[in-house]
Design a binder for these strands. Structure first.
Length: 888
RNA sequence: GCCGGGAUGGCGGAAUUGGUAGACGCACGGGACUCAAAAUCCCGCGCCCUCAAAAGGCGUGCGAGUUCGACUCUCGCUCCCGGCACCA
């Protein structure tokens, strides 16, 4: 064995050894329990960041742990290789996204290998590979056949200067990130996947996932947002003069594009609060509502507001935080129950995409309606009362909306009814009049997958003047994306590629145009975990090997994916099941949501409103004479703005490349530090303070092993038979107690305390007297426990020392250590003594002392007597094995 | 704005889920070794009171509450992080 710990040499050797033996190659073994450990595959952004190291170290720890527990393990890796950053890089550097992506993959693969992860690289896949995305297209066509894919319009962010669609991320404060132009909403045709058809199952099946964190299930349930309510209509008549504020029908205008809106009918709304229906004082509709369009068409005064509503981004967070505004239209509809004429407003806060794009407004019992009514002086009519509370229109109170304790008032025949009874009665009356009925509504919307972008899976559709939209026949798949385009920020470059666009209609053979939209990259990531089971199958999307490996026993990834990616994957799995492709209801049995790795954010904003981000490593804080702190870019010394802290990301340029850490300390120390520094699910603000401690620990382990290796004859044999002297028994008890706790902690994925357990064991070993055979035996056993406990976290050094100290030929094949119950037994235990809940000392009692004996010992204790000081003892609480509380 | 989560010494965190708050580390201070430095080893290290110690008091974001006992449970806040459907 080498005297000095040299991680770089030793790690390279271990990795070569594993690779030469194909140590992590997984094969199906139906007789052995399997463990499929899946980590969310990375986007190849350039280089690994700390979040990747954290994610994949967690996965590797579990993979190696379960291998030692006897499972047939699979840990695959791949690349989420399509997406926007490649196009941005192309604009910046003029390199085609394909080349940039492949270069990044090569570099990052090398980085992952240098970290020594137990990955089966033979299953590697990249979603930009036609052999992969062919199956996106194939399944899209199957879904189209089943009606699970359909085409309709959707709203996107439009940059009027670059004449291009912007991603939400490319809109900053309502302006295009490159042009600074105010963004507009624009409706364009798109393909949708009908995820809402699975809404009920996606919601109900959350209960079949005990291995998922509650918070993720709650978020998904809220996202699906099942609500029970009533859908009903306010009847209207465009041609009736009494519908109009001025008492006459306004001059008719040409029908708006899209065919207009019927002149008579019902304006439909959905409400979960039908009990408040008698308190409706006006209605609000979205600016995109066809009635709003018709109204704006004949009333020019409405036009500016409708235009204003069309400016700005489509992001929900923007819509929800903007000032609530509206305009009255002068048009009135009729209340279905009391016959009142109510005015229709256009409101910027009404979402066309949810419900009917129109809402009934009950200012007295809905907070948003309340503020809106106060702002515009609209009537507020109380129709719900809560006992002992006085309603006032001065300010909003939470209880105004209380469903639980409220009863109807000022509501005619519904007075006195509680929420449930009122809803039932009102729904029945509406139904009787043919005005409405109960309805279940979901917040979940269908999944728009069309992207007006180049670097993605081409949508396999051909547009023919004669035949319409024609699916590409299966035998022509994949529709291959040309790899030499360089986007320039002004729309999808595919539109300019005649060799891609021009094609023959598969149906009639005439010249036709190929669809140039590509698929949302969430499509790629919705099923890659299935493909790992059979990446070599060129004839089928999936095969029977999926049945062996799936569902994944553990899925690990950032909490930021709690909703979208995980919900889409669950949906996709169910679709494939219903198409008979897999026998699987849910893809991921257990889910570990890794906390985000955050870092500081620095940027500069140009006059045009463009933002440039700078890496925290490239900026410097300084303090001037007056004690003011400022931050500047090292390169030019000019100030930058501090943008707080946030997720390490390509777009914010605040990633930390782990390579420096690996180059300096080696993979084991980097891995150990990453696990030690915080529990996996916690948010982590990056700092390398403390990495020295990890380095010190592994050096100390090595030095201790070196000293021990000189006592070559030591073995654990001497532990059998004779009792150990007290100092050794204590050391051994300590080691086994720490191991017991560590095994518990591994089970609950708290790896930071597993790492400290390893440190505690080394501390105990260093304290143990090891002069004689018994001492040598305790240390021999302790070291073998320590190396196995460490091997999932620091596999290289564990591998080397296991060999050098003669424990065996391969620690990968060693069994996981379990504590020896005999080693844990103690004759006397220590109990904490409290008086009135305050710690006042401790006592030692025999291990098997009963409650009464303990009470006697404690009350006799002089320290306790001092604090009781003659007061009568009211009660003695004894918590076995822990403490005694004397209450006086 | 809505949904989910978090807050414990100078720092990362621990506390077997209602039972000794601060394990294990980092940083820092003191000491040993050394011509010196690095490395290594030993000791100290929540705050207040105290020259120091003993003894005592306070202490888990803030404010109430339940309990013999609260970092842990309940209610009300503050701040921070993640998501909000075209970043992935």
């Amino acid at each position: 064995m080498q005297q000095k710990y040299n991680p770089h040499v030793l790690e390279r050797e271990a990795q070569r050894d594993w690779e030469a033996r194909g140590a992590f190659r997984a094969t199906e073994a139906p007789d052995k329990p399997k463990y499929y450990c899946l980590s969310m595959f990375p986007y190849p952004s350039g280089k690994l960041h700390m979040g990747h190291v954290r994610n994949y170290t967690i996965g590797d720890v579990l993979t190696r742990y379960f291998r030692m527990k006897g499972r047939n393990v699979l840990q695959p890796m791949g690349w989420d290789a399509f997406g926007l950053p490649a196009e941005n890089a192309a604009m910046q550097n003029g390199v085609p996204p394909a080349k940039w992506t492949h270069d990044n993959i090569d570099y990052m693969r090398k980085q992952l290998k240098s970290l020594g992860f137990a990955i089966d690289w033979s299953r590697e896949l990249a979603t930009c590979d036609p052999a992969y995305y062919k199956w996106n297209q194939w399944l899209f066509l199957r879904m189209l056949e089943k009606g699970l894919v359909y085409k309709t319009t959707g709203v996107v962010n439009w940059d009027p200067v670059d004449q291009t669609v912007l991603a939400n991320e490319q809109v900053i404060d309502g302006r295009g990130w490159r042009t600074g132009a105010v963004v507009e909403k624009r409706e364009i045709p798109m393909y949708y996947m009908a995820i809402t058809r699975y809404a009920d199952e996606l919601l109900a099946a959350l209960d079949t996932l005990p291995g998922w964190p509650e918070r993720v299930k709650t978020m998904q349930a809220n996202w699906i947002g099942k609500s029970y309510g009533v859908n009903f209509g306010f009847s209207y008549d465009w041609t009736d003069p009494t519908s109009w504020k001025e008492g006459k029908v306004p001059a008719s205008a040409p029908p708006p594009h899209g065919g207009g809106y019927p002149l008579q009918g019902q304006l439909k709304v959905f409400t979960t609060r039908a009990d408040t229906i008698m308190g409706v004082t006006f209605l609000a509709i979205a600016a995109e509502h066809p009635l709003a369009e018709r109204l704006a068409n004949c009333r020019p005064a409405l036009q500016p507001f409708v235009e204003e509503c069309k400016r700005g981004s489509v992001m929900e967070a923007d819509l929800a935080t903007m000032e609530k505004k509206g305009v009255p239209t002068g048009f009135h509809v009729t209340h279905p129950l009391n016959g009142e004429k109510l005015e229709v407003w256009i409101g910027n806060y009404v979402l066309m995409g949810y419900g009917e794009g129109a809402v009934m407004a009950v200012p007295a019992h809905d907070e948003r309606d309340f503020h809106f009514a106060r702002k515009y002086g609209l009537p507020i009519r109380q129709v719900i009362a809560v006992p002992d509370k006085v309603f006032s229109t001065d300010a909003w109170q939470d209880w105004y909306a209380d469903k639980e304790s409220g009863v109807c008032v000022n509501s005619g025949r519904y007075d006195g009814l509680d929420y449930k009874k009122a809803v039932d009665a009102i729904a029945a009356d509406l139904a009787a009049k043919g005005a409405g009925e109960k309805q279940v509504l979901y917040r979940l919307r269908d999944w728009g997958i069309s992207r007006q972008r180049y670097w993605g899976t081409p949508i396999p559709i051909i547009h023919c003047a004669a035949c319409g939209d024609v699916p590409v026949p299966d035998h022509q798949l994949p529709v291959v994306l040309p790899e030499d385009c360089v986007p320039d920020g002004t729309g999808n470059p595919l539109n300019k590629r005649a060799d891609f666009v021009e094609c023959k209609c598969p149906r009639c053979g005439q010249a036709a145009r190929r669809e140039t939209d590509t698929m949302d990259t969430f499509v790629d990531s919705s099923w890659y975990y299935l493909r790992y089971a059979c990446p070599d199958n060129t004839a089928q999307m999936v095969d029977q090997r999926v049945s062996y490996w799936l569902p994944a026993d553990q899925y690990i990834g950032g909490i930021e994916h709690a909703i979208l990616h995980l919900l889409y994957s669950r949906f996709w799995t169910k679709v494939m099941r219903d198409l008979g492709l897999v026998k699987l209801d849910e893809p991921f049995r257990n889910l570990l949501t890794q906390g985000m790795v955050l870092n500081e954010i620095y940027f500069r904003r140009s006059e045009a409103g463009r933002i440039a981000y700078y890496n925290p490593a490239d900026v410097e804080w300084s303090t001037d004479g007056a004690g003011n702190r400022s931050v500047a870019l090292k390169a030019d010394g000019k100030p930058v703005e501090a943008g707080g802290i946030g997720t390490m990301s390509k777009s914010k340029n605040n990633g930390v490349d782990p390579q420096e850490l690996i180059d300096h300390y080696g993979a084991d120390i980097a891995r150990f530090f990453m696990m030690f520094t915080s529990p996996p699910e916690d948010t982590l603000v990056w700092s390398d303070a403390g990495v020295e401690g990890a380095a010190r620990f592994l050096r100390r382990l090595w030095n201790f092993s070196w000293e021990f290796s000189k006592t070559a004859t030591a073995s654990a044999d001497a532990l059998r038979g004779a009792a150990l002297p007290p100092a050794l028994a204590t050391a051994r008890r300590e080691i086994h107690a720490v191991l017991k706790q560590a095994n518990y902690d591994i089970g609950r994925h708290q790896f930071n305390t597993v790492a400290s357990a390893a440190m505690k064991i080394l501390n105990a070993l260093e304290r143990a007297p090891q002069g004689d055979a018994a001492g040598g035996a305790v240390v021999h056993e302790g070291l073998s426990i320590l190396l196995r406990l460490l091997s999932p976290i620091t596999p290289h050094v564990a591998h080397r020392l296991w060999l050098d100290l003669g424990f065996g030929s391969d620690i990968l094949e060693a069994t996981w250590p379990e504590p020896d119950p005999a080693a844990l037994i103690e004759e006397e235990i220590e109990l904490v003594v409290q008086v009135n809940g305050k710690k006042r000392g401790d006592v030692r009692v025999p291990r098997d002392a009963d409650r009464k004996a303990i009470e006697g010992i404690v009350l006799a204790d002089p320290a306790v007597q001092k604090f009781i000081s003659g007061q009568p003892v009211k009660k003695v609480v004894v918590v076995p094995g822990r403490l005694v509380n004397v209450v006086v």
